[in-house]
């Protein structure tokens, strides 16, 4: 629901198109628009995945930079949050993080 709202708002405006962290390439810099795990496949219930991401400090407004990616299917990725802590996560879970390029 949250995702649709954001997608809708971006379609209307001139702001860059919304994308998820799961689609970001190394070198990407931006901010988190929303953490919304709806539709992300995995063993965790959506809310639990959301809390895990929040636990890493991935909250709305945080600055994000994609630093590295793995060899196979460019997965997982290493991201820096607010210019400090670096976390590794898979693109699947990163798909729950909506970002806007800086």
């Amino acid at each position: 629901m949250l995702r649709q709202t954001h997608l809708g708002s971006s379609d209307a405006g001139t702001t860059p198109r919304d994308m998820t962290l799961g689609q970001a390439k190394p070198g990407f810099k931006g901010n988190i628009l929303a953490v919304d795990p709806v539709g992300v496949q995995g063993s965790l219930p959506e809310e639990e995945l959301e809390r895990r991401l929040l636990e890493m400090g991935l909250v709305e407004g945080a600055e994000i930079e994609v630093l590295h990616q793995g060899l196979i299917r460019r997965d997982p990725i290493a991201v820096r949050i607010n210019g400090r802590a670096t976390f590794a996560l898979r693109r699947r879970e990163a798909g729950a993080v909506l970002v806007v390029p800086a």
Binding site: G42, S43, L44, A78, T86, L89, R90
Partner: peptide
Amino acid sequence: KAQHDPFLLQL
């Protein structure tokens, strides 16, 4: 049938 567990790890 098990789903993937996430991989979230601080570097």
